[in-house]
């Protein structure tokens, strides 16, 4: 297990470093002088020179990358150009909105999709199975941001039950913040539930078709026992993958949902950073998203090893 873990950790680290290189070099490719781009056409030469030094443009790119990456590792992510504050602190504050949103949506998706997918698989060949299949197929085709608009239309505009957008902040009002996250979580979670339900059903069907399930049933074990002790445990490996995938999807999906509901999350900040040419902030935000995705896929692989000894020792 240890060898497997170290090998997988190493490839994850390589991925993160390559991702940081991609983020860094993409912004290097900005046509023209970044300082001029940020300050506009009428900038004073002194201001340009000062900004170039602030952005570190007076040092060669390779050296700049190493310095930036070193800073990232130490927690010094540079300073935002539009806010004049440390990037790391800004990102950290915005994660207070984005992470609860993503986790809430993932939790909702699991609560709906796992029972539904398993239930549909067990009822294969009956009239309920196709209903679940069609519902999940349609659900997966609905864009989350459009579902968000529909939810606003219904719950905020028509019924006036919930706010159409905005966020009071955790320190101001916890219940208000939770209320503000309710519709965004629904918008993000329901579509993901549809995707997950389909995959869970397929995973469960796969396991139910295995010989050991037939053997267990043939030797007279009650169906309940067969499902919970034999089938479900083996379907878990696939379900964990689905879970990791879902977490990635909702975290990335939160970028769009934050825009729909005017939530002050990381995605919305990244979008304004583009408009304001705030490269240090944008670099940091994109790196957080990319690293999270790599980390999630690493965790999925590690849990594979825990769940399935064949993978551990391979």
């Amino acid at each position: 297990m240890l060898a497997y873990l170290t090998r997988r950790l190493l490839t994850a680290l390589v991925s993160v470093v390559l991702a940081s290189l991609l983020v860094f070099s993409a912004l290097l490719a900005v046509p023209g002088d970044p300082a001029a781009l940020i300050l506009g056409m009428n900038a004073q030469p002194e201001a340009l020179a000062a900004l170039r030094i602030r952005l570190g443009l007076d040092v060669p790119p390779a050296q700049r990358y190493v310095a930036w990456l070193g800073g990232v590792v130490r927690g010094d992510w540079g300073e935002s150009l539009q806010f004049g504050r440390p990037v790391a602190a800004l990102i950290w504050a915005r994660l207070g909105v984005s992470v609860p949103l993503a986790l809430g949506a993932a939790l909702l998706a699991c609560l709906i999709a796992l029972p539904l997918g398993i239930w549909a698989a067990l009822r294969r060949g009956t009239a309920t199975d196709p209903v679940v299949i069609v519902a999940s197929q349609v659900g997966a085709a609905i864009p989350s941001f459009w579902l968000g608009l529909l939810l606003i239309l219904f719950f905020a505009v028509e019924l006036r039950w919930l706010p159409a957008g905005g966020f009071p902040g955790w320190e101001r009002s916890v219940t208000g913040s939770l209320r503000a996250l309710l519709l965004p979580v629904l918008a993000l979670g329901l579509g993901q539930a549809a995707v997950m339900a389909r995959l869970t059903r397929a995973a469960m069907l796969d396991v139910l078709a295995q010989d050991y399930v037939r053997t267990a049933r043939a030797k007279g074990l009650p169906m309940r026992k067969v499902i919970y002790e034999h089938a479900l445990r083996n379907a878990l490996v696939t379900i964990v993958t689905i879970l990791g995938l879902s977490l990635t999807n909702v975290f990335i999906g939160s970028i769009v949902i934050e825009q729909v509901f005017a939530l002050p999350g990381l995605g919305r900040m990244a979008l304004t950073a583009i408009g304001n040419r705030d490269f240090p902030l944008l670099q940091g935000a994109i790196l957080v998203y990319a690293t999270t995705i790599v980390l999630l896929s690493f965790l999925v692989d590690v849990s594979y090893g825990l769940l399935d000894p064949r993978i551990r020792y391979a």
Binding site: L18, L271, L282, T291
Partner: peptide
């Protein structure tokens, strides 16, 4: 190298490209 692209779903990649 292809794995690295996994870490950049379309929206993230678009954020990066839109800045450049």
């Amino acid at each position: 190298l292809v794995d690295v692209l996994y870490a950049f779903p379309a929206i993230l990649m678009a954020l990066l490209l839109a800045a450049v």
